[in-house]
Every structure is written in C-alpha cells, then in structure tokens.
Design a protein around this nucleic acid. Sequence first.
DNA 1: AAAAAAGTTGACCGTTTTGTCAACTTCTAT
DNA 2: ATAGAAGTTGACAAAACGGTCAACTTTTTT
Lengths: 223, 223
Amino acid sequence: MAGSLKRNDSIDEIAAPGVSEDRIRARNVQKILSAAVEVFSRKGLDGARIVEIAKASGLPKGNVYYYFSSKEEIYNATIAHLIHSWDEAFQHISADREPAVAIEDYVRTKLEYARQNAAETRLFANEILQGAGHLSGEARDHMRSITAEKAKVIDAWVAAGKMVKVDARHLFILLWSATQFYAEFEALACDALQVDQLRTADYNLAAKTITQTVLGGLLPRPS
Amino acid sequence: MAGSLKRNDSIDEIAAPGVSEDRIRARNVQKILSAAVEVFSRKGLDGARIVEIAKASGLPKGNVYYYFSSKEEIYNATIAHLIHSWDEAFQHISADREPAVAIEDYVRTKLEYARQNAAETRLFANEILQGAGHLSGEARDHMRSITAEKAKVIDAWVAAGKMVKVDARHLFILLWSATQFYAEFEALACDALQVDQLRTADYNLAAKTITQTVLGGLLPRPS
DNA sequence: AAAAAAGTTGACCGTTTTGTCAACTTCTAT
DNA sequence: ATAGAAGTTGACAAAACGGTCAACTTTTTT
C-alpha cells in the first residue's frame, strides 16, 4: 500500500518522474498524451482527429474519453508543459560565464532537446503559428520575464566589452530560430542537406556552424 | 469588348498582374485564394473549414464550390506558388558579388518578403511542419537544385578567402530560419521584443542584428 | 431585345467526427 | 472471497462537415 490512493483528477504527468509508474491511470494518461503530442504536432488542434490519437495510443476511443472529457482538454494538457525547455536551456546564459562557452552550451542544449523532443518542439511551433491562443497568460508572462532577465546578461557582457554591441532580444530570436529549425522543418532541412534523415553528424555540424558563425562571424579576421 | 474572353480554366492568378482585373471569375478566385491562404496558414489543410474560407472571402459556401471542386484543390492552388520567393531572394547570392553585401541584401529581401507576405510564409511553414506532403516533387527538386547551386557560390567565396570556412547548407538554414521567424512566430517575437505588434523599426533592427551577427560575429575583434 | 452563358444562393444529403453510455471486465482493499 | 471502485469497450446519438444541386439573377453575346 503506497500511501492513500484516492482519485487522481489532476493531469500533470506528461513526464513521469521515475520509470514505470504502474498505476493504470497514470500509464494510460501518459500513453494518450504522448500520442496526442505526436498527432497535434502535425495537425494542430482542429486538424487532429481523436480516433487518430486513440489509435496511436493503442487505446479504443471510448477509453480516451474515460480519461479526458474533450479534445481541447487533451490539447491543453499537452501544451501546458511546453515552456519548461525554454528556461532549462536558458540556464546556460548566466552572467558569470564567458559568452563564448555560454552560447555554445546554449546552442548545443537547445539543439539536442529539439532533436530528442521533436514532436513537442513541433507542437510548440504549431501553437505559436496558430496565434498562441492556448498558451496560458502565466506561461507567456513567464517566458517574457525569463527573456528579459537573460537579455540583461547579454547587455552586461556587452557593457563589459566581452561582446560586440548587439540587441539581446533579436539575438535570442536568432538562436531560437536556428536551433528549432531542424526539428520543426525536418523535411526542408533534409532537402537542403541532401540526406533522407537527420543524423547525429548533421546535428553536430549544425551546432558547429551556428556557434562558429554567431560567435566568430563569416568574414575573415584581419590577422 | 476587349479581345476574345472564353473560359478561364487554369488557376494561376494568385498574384494579379495589374490592379483591378475586372473579370468576375478572376476576382472571385482571387478572393477565395487570399482567404484560403489566411485560413490554411493558421489551421493547415485538415484543420481549415471551408465555411471559414467562404466567410473570410465574403462569398457563400456554394459559390466557393462553383470555382473549386474540393478543399484539397484550393489548398494545392495556394501552395503551388510558394517556391517563387525562394529563388527570388536567392538571386542575391551570386559569385560576382562581395559576400558581405550579398548576404545583407539576401537577409533584407527575405525579411521584407516574409513581412509583406506573412500568411504565405506561415502557410509554407505549416506545410513543411506537416511533412511537406503536398509540395510537388518538382517543387522540391527545384528547391534542392537551387540550394545546391547557391551552396557552390558560398564554397567559391570560401575558396577565394573571402569568407571563413563554413558549411554552406547549414549557413542557409541559419539564414532561412532567422528571416522567417518573425512572420511565422510573430506572437513569440512580440513577446520577446515586448511589443504588441511588429513594426518597421523592429524589422530593421532584426535585419541589422542578423547581418551584423552573421557577418562579423559576436566576439570582439582584436584591433 | 432575346437567348445563352456565367454566376449566385440556400436548402439539402451522405459522411465523418465528437462525445455519451450501459454493459462488462479487471483491479484493489478488506 | 467478496464488494466496490476503476477501467474497458463497442454501439450509439447528435452535431459538424464536405460537397451537391436546382432554381434564380446577372452578365455577355448576337
């Protein structure tokens, strides 16, 4: 008997803590959410069909509705957690580090996250593309404040002469867009790179190209 | 009577040449396609409802079906033209120019196009996100060959010592992602920049930040 | 001015889709 | 072992949706 196990009404198990949470509810909710992220990331809220989510989760449709009362509820549950990776990678941008290593770490972390969580990354892109109407006000406030905070770090680096004068917020956008592109627009990236699938080598060269270009620039330096 | 005016079966008036093409068919097809680009760009093929397209175009649903025989036909008509901006901006990347001015021109052109054609840009993003299944093989081949061709220009610049050694294809991805971001993810860009709407000044600073960073890099140069 | 062609429209039909439910099975606590 | 709670399921109802159409109006041709 592992504690009192009443009813579990809340839906916040998109990332199970341990390994095999054996409670049936937790397991099935997880199955549904994983499938939902995949489907929503391709089709968006209105384009996704719940039978598709049901099939992808291996559960019959009726069972999906046993855990969630509507498609929108599933959708909201999937996007509720999307902001986390934002801060996480952002932790690398801290005032007491050297810009070069901080930015390189940031790029590598963000690229790696996007690669390992391609569906979530696409889902986020899809949600923003549609106008971000389902992101909670708090989530957006949070992103805004984290961005502002980290922008100050860049400004401090500039003030300390460790970096060329640059607009911190546009710089972040440059880094976000580049690091998310490979996961969001994989089909396009594959075409451009003339491969049929992005492999580790491609991601490594992406990281190298981004950091090298952003940090050192393209123009040859006068010796 | 301005010449022979038979029937116009082809659907290629997404960008009317003159101003007020007065033929009813042309005008209405245009209305529908414009509305469709807007709706598809937010919801995708499956998520878009044709009543929504009808409403946005100001025409009743039945009338929409007088000009198009299915939703997919409308969708295909909207994406058929998306590749054009690709080459157009790419024209700036030519071997006989200096890298610095070529890349700056490219960034500004692409940014400006994305701003002025935000819905098309989002539609393209949406289509790629969903796997690019409706882009014709020829369109993708075309993009592949143009990319390869322009990659050679970069390689030549590198060989001539005009640029630091860099992977041309990943560099293009870096430029694409940055220049498209503002139109595709406007909601996010607005949050990051703390504005409620992107204005000319924001686009100018974006262009400046991208070119400055990509060309010169962030790290201070040894004098 | 009359006829033909093109365009307009709301009502309609079959299908898909969301969401419900009652009968059933499995699990868990005692 | 048993009772009650939790979970499962296919069948079903209601609504939304894609697409059709016949009657109608407007435009163009002669």
